[in-house]
Lab assay of single mutants.
Amino acid sequence: MDVCVRLALWLLWGLLLHQGQSLSHSHSEKATGTSSGANSEESTAAEFCRIDKPLCHSEDEKLSFEAVRNIHKLMDDDANGDVDVEESDEFLREDLNYHDPTVKHSTFHGEDKLISVEDLWKAWKSSEVYNWTVDEVVQWLITYVELPQYEETFRKLQLSGHAMPRLAVTNTTMTGTVLKMTDRSHRQKLQLKALDTVLFGPPLLTRHNHLKDFMLVVSIVIGVGGCWFAYIQNRYSKEHMKKMMKDLEGLHRAEQSLHDLQERLHKAQEEHRTVEVEKVHLEKKLRDEINLAKQEAQRLKELREGTENERSRQKYAEEELEQVREALRKAEKELESHSSWYAPEALQKWLQLTHEVEVQYYNIKKQNAEKQLLVAKEGAEKIKKKRNTLFGTFHVAHSSSLDDVDHKILTAKQALSEVTAALRERLHRWQQIEILCGFQIVNNPGIHSLVAALNIDPSWMGSTRPNPAHFIMTDDVDDMDEEIVSPLSMQSPSLQSSVRQRLTEPQHGLGS
């Protein structure tokens, strides 16, 4: 029994001894940790006062410096006190997940390849973020970090730009207890964004957000305005092209109309020559008939004078003969009235020469109109080809070629109108001259024959008349068809009918 009691006491004593040793060891460790923490804080404070003595007594600045020092320690893998190029590049790629850190790398180092804690602190103090207000930090939280649900907490804590380094380091107390961020992804996102802002300055999105919006609005307005302008120009170009094509079609119709007119003019001239020949034959025939009538009257007179026994018949025959003579005298007077005045042959040749010289100047004017028309046609064809290209319509709308071609078409039409008026006036004037003179002027042997017949020096006439060419005029020349008939041919039928009527009546009387 005593043995059992003793054994229990030994065990209890051993447990108490072991517990005492454990408590003693724990207290010694706590004392050691407290001592090392105090030494670390003293070291940080001493270093901060050495680097930035004016701010070393500010608790907030001291906390920010400690956060900057921890960031530098995080980047300094070899713990030599300086962050070199390789260490910063590795940190950007692995910790901040930048696949192309060239720009960030140059911004961080600049011309200094080794970055110490002092360099990093001075860079942070010179950053724009260091002077941010609470509102600017909240704006950064909303737009860049995209965590607007913590806006009220940031405003309540009055977190300005000075506190940004403390957000950039992993601090459970700061993010969990103070900021009350329960979501781990939110804490990590805030820490990475803050670290990027401390090292490289304010984000471009935050700094140029309004400018970007303004430029976007301006670009949209310019784009819409450009599209509207292109649409208006395209519609104007199509309308202008439609008008130009309509004018061009009018020129083609006028060309065909003048071609038909020239054919009718040539045909009328041929008919005029035929009528002139018929007139000469008719006059000769009338003279022959008059002579035959005179001979017949003389023969009847002689027969009736030789027959004294038939006085009654003779008297009747003499009366008939007197009627025939009276008819012959009237026919002769009618014929003489139409051919009583004949212009000198020299006057006819001079008038024919005048007509040919006028035709020369008319042909020159006509050729100029043809050239203008050809230029207008070529310009229209070029515009047609340009319209078939990809940007042809837009190019035509913004060039002056369309207006130039339109002006050329209008100029050609005006020139053709002048040529039309000149042709109309010339035909009418020479027709009236032919009526008054009674001989042909338009139809003549040609300028060379006339110059030779009148003994004129050929050098006075200049160049010879160009051959009539096919040219274009407007449709108002169609009503000239009825005026192209020679006035002499219009007189011939009346002359034929009057003479024939007077010759036929006596012959019928003789026949009876």
Rank of each mutant, 00 (worst) to 15 (best):
H72F: 08
S64V: 14
V68Y: 04
S64T: 12
E86T: 13
S64P: 13
S88I: 03
D77E: 01
H72E: 06
S88L: 00
A67S: 02
G81R: 08
E94S: 14
S88D: 03
L74N: 09
I71G: 10
Y98E: 03
R93A: 15
F91P: 14
S64K: 14
D78M: 12
E66R: 07
D76I: 15
V85F: 08
E90W: 04
L96I: 04
L63N: 10
F91I: 07
R93F: 13
A67I: 10
D84F: 09
D95S: 07
N70G: 15
H72L: 01
N70P: 13
D78Y: 06
D84E: 06
F65C: 09
S64I: 07
Y98D: 01
I71F: 03
E87R: 07
L92M: 03
E87N: 02
F65V: 09
A67Y: 11
R93S: 09
R69T: 09
A79D: 00
E87Y: 04
M75T: 03
N70K: 01
R93D: 14
L74F: 01
V85G: 02
D78H: 05
E87F: 02
Y98N: 00
D84R: 11
F91G: 14
G81W: 14
L92N: 15
N80E: 11
N97A: 04
A79I: 04
I71M: 05
D76E: 08
E86N: 09
A79W: 10
E94V: 05
V68M: 09
L63I: 07
V68E: 09
D95P: 11
K73M: 09
L74Y: 10
R69P: 03
D84C: 06
E86G: 03
D82T: 15
M75Y: 11
L92C: 15
F91L: 04
E66A: 02
L74H: 08
K73H: 10
A67F: 10
K73F: 08
D77T: 06
F91H: 14
L96N: 11
N70T: 07
D78N: 07
L74K: 07
E87M: 10
S88A: 00
H72K: 06
D95F: 06
N97F: 00
D78R: 15
H72Y: 01
R93W: 07
K73N: 04
F91V: 10
L74R: 04
V83A: 05
L74W: 10
A67V: 02
S88K: 02
D77A: 00
F91Q: 14
E66T: 12
L96H: 05
G81F: 07
F65K: 12
E66K: 04
Y98H: 00
L92Q: 10
D82K: 10
D84S: 07
E86R: 06
M75A: 09
E86L: 04
K73G: 08
E90F: 11
N70C: 12
D89K: 06
R69S: 01
D95R: 06
L96Q: 11
L74C: 12
L63T: 13
L63S: 05
N80P: 11
E90K: 00
